[in-house]
Design a protein around this nucleic acid. Structure first.
Length: 582
RNA sequence: GCGCCCGUAGCUCAGCUGGAUAGAGCGCUGCCCUCCGGAGGCAGAAGUCGGGGGUUCGAAUCCCUCCGGGCGCGCCA
């Protein structure tokens, strides 16, 4: 609808005399005040300067050039030179019919024209279960992917599995120590190890099998030669010595087997958690595969070939400052191993190599330093740095009513996504996570999320949907069938203020999807749905839908069914269910 | 110290590309079904858009500066 108006106005602008160069594309926005009509444009004010004419005069001129259209009921000039457009009843009726006819597809567009976009999100290190913060990433990323898909982009949803590097060695060591514990050989657990109970669980499942393969048990004085642990010694040095020692004892194969057991079960758990949360991925991309395929080495070659590297202190540095980063970055350490940053360059080059025009990374707010350096890496290797778009997600603070929930592992308070889901439910969690801008810190009130009252936007929106379903089944119980054709023909009977308001809200839905997709801001959808639910509830309270007058009844059912469809579609984008009863 | 994010009603937050009289929810005050689900609706009170300066026809929105809060600045991942 909005685009129709834009096209009409563009025609008028193109005909305007005295314009040098290309005519600016007129911009239409929704009028803030219903008294001003449905849409407004400030084009006349924008043209005032180049044309050296008064805005109101230009507006007058434009109005006479706007082609006649059945969707327009009126065009007026207001204030300093706004052009206000009022939609005709026909325009609303057409749109209502479109909602019914398009069904699930209503609100979708081909705006993206099939552009290939890779959305990478969560990508939590596979060293433990997902926590609450990852839940926000998952909910946000899934919505962004849905929004991009709904607006005609070809979307790939990807999880980057950091299954290479030292953290994996620490995981293997930690798991192996837990397995030892179960065999009764109590060794001191290093302070830098992964202490979570989940590793004990995994160890329990693995210990029997490992034992039969001769990996267990080990002598209890194992690791005695390692430098002291913190607080007296260096925790990292201690850890590294233990890892080296273990690798020697178990051999490369044995070590990898232990590592594999830990990685696999944690990854399975993460997959399951996300799946149950309604977050589906197209691909889990392994960092290790990147290393083993030689992609990292290849990426390094490309960076070196660009001439933007140098050697200092035995390490190879990438001169990121050549591309606007604040400092240069190491890509190969003095010990010969590549850095995480090197993998990152390789990964992003690899994504480009797979044909993705846009790379959307959804990262924690603490990762903002990466953006410049990865872009620098892309630029050095000849890729357009702006193809990488990063959305930073701020932290989540849990509240139980007024009390802040401490999220330290030690406190014993829950911190995992699974526990959150179990406490408040998937729908509430998904909606709460995306109800705020990703750039905003999120206060997540568990009590509010659980409450089944109007305080809770989840239930408020779902209730509107269930209410419509309830009306339909009530009609059914009375032996009344909705006559679709008669309803569509009788839409001119919808003249109550509540009905007009609801229609105005429905028409806005495709614009909201577009806006939310463009800004990657799903909170717009949440706020829109809340408003839509409000309009529905108000209408419900003011009027009855199942009335004697058949034409009016069918028209009203048409309106609420269209509302139900939009609620459903919107909730679908958010990954929240639309129950028929609650 | 440098960089990024944030500061809007008592609380939690929207506010689109700069646009017309800054909006919701909660909380507070008072109302509303003999009815298709009261998990609802209606009305009211409540604001120096952190302070100051600038850009312009117009600033919560852009720029500068100050104040306050969060995060980041490894040959970690």
């Amino acid at each position: 609808m909005k685009h129709q108006i834009e096209t009409l106005l563009a025609t008028a602008v193109a005909e305007l005399p005295g314009l040098e160069g290309p005519a600016p594309t007129p911009v239409i926005e929704r009028a803030r005040d219903a008294q001003h009509g449905d849409y407004a444009s400030n084009i006349a004010m924008q043209l005032a300067k180049p044309l050296r004419r008064k805005p109101r005069e230009i507006a007058e001129d434009l109005i006479t050039r706007i082609p006649d259209s059945p969707v327009l009921a009126g065009v007026e000039i207001a204030g300093p030179g706004f052009i206000n457009f009022r939609l005709s009843p026909d325009a609303f009726h057409q749109e209502l019919v479109r909602v019914i006819d398009d069904g699930q597809a209503y609100g979708c567009s081909d705006l993206g024209q099939g552009e290939r976009v890779l959305v990478e999100f969560v990508s939590a290190n596979p060293t433990g279960p997902l926590h609450v913060g990852h839940g926000r990433h998952a909910a946000y990323g899934a919505c962004v992917a849905n929004l991009l898909a709904a607006t005609g982009h070809e979307v790939q949803r990807e999880y980057y599995v950091n299954d290479a590097g030292r953290q994996m060695d620490i995981l293997a060591l930690s798991l192996w120590l837990r397995m030892q514990d179960l065999r009764g050989t109590g060794l001191a657990f290093p302070s830098g190890g992964y202490r979570g109970d989940y590793l004990v669980e995994i160890a329990r499942g693995a210990v029997g099998d490992a034992h039969t393969r001769g990996l267990l048990p080990m002598p209890s004085d194992w690791g005695a030669g390692a430098p002291p642990d913190a607080p007296d010694g260096d925790a990292d040095a201690h850890l590294d010595a233990l890892i080296e020692n273990l690798r020697e004892r178990l051999g490369i194969e044995g070590f990898r087997e232990v590592l594999g057991i830990g990685l696999q079960s944690i990854l399975d758990d993460i997959r399951q958690d996300l799946g149950e949360f309604g977050v589906a991925y197209d691909n889990f991309f392994s960092e290790r595969s990147l290393v083993e395929s030689g992609a990292v080495a290849e990426a390094l070659e490309r960076v070196k070939a660009s001439g933007h590297t140098y050697i200092e202190g035995g390490a190879t540095w990438f001169r990121a400052t050549d591309f606007g980063d604040e400092k240069d970055r190491v890509v190969v350490r003095d010990n010969g191993s590549t850095t995480y940053f090197a993998s990152d360059i390789a990964y992003h080059l690899q994504k480009r190599g797979r044909g993705y025009a846009r790379l959307v990374d959804i990262l924690g707010a603490d990762h903002h330093g990466y953006i410049a350096r990865v872009r620098a890496g892309l630029a050095a290797t000849g890729e357009p740095p702006e193809c990488l778009e990063v959305d930073l997600v701020q932290f989540v603070v849990l509240y139980r009513g007024k009390d802040k929930v401490q999220m330290s592992t030690r406190s014993g308070q829950f911190i995992t996504l699974r526990e959150l889901r179990e406490e408040v439910g998937d729908d509430a969690a998904r909606l709460f996570f995306v109800s705020r801008s990703n750039e905003q810190h999120l206060d997540f009130d568990l009590e509010l999320a659980k409450s089944r009252t109007n305080e809770n936007p989840v239930y408020y929106i779902q209730y509107a949907h269930a209410r419509i379903c309830s009306v339909m089944s009530a009609a059914d119980n009375q032996g009344i069938q909705w006559n679709e054709a008669r309803g569509k023909q009788s839409l001119s009977r919808l003249t109550e203020s509540h009905e007009l308001k609801l229609m105005q809200a429905l028409v806005r839905y495709p614009e909201m999807v577009e806006l939310a997709a463009r800004q990657r801001a799903p909170q717009h959808i949440v706020h829109y749905l809340r408003d839509l639910a409000n309009d529905l509830h108000a209408y419900y309270n003011a009027h009855r839908f199942i009335v004697e007058d058949e034409a009016l009844r069918d028209a009203r059912l048409c309106l609420i069914l269209a509302t139900r469809q939009v609620l459903r579609n919107g909730l679908g984008l958010l990954g929240v269910s639309a129950p028929a009863s609650m």
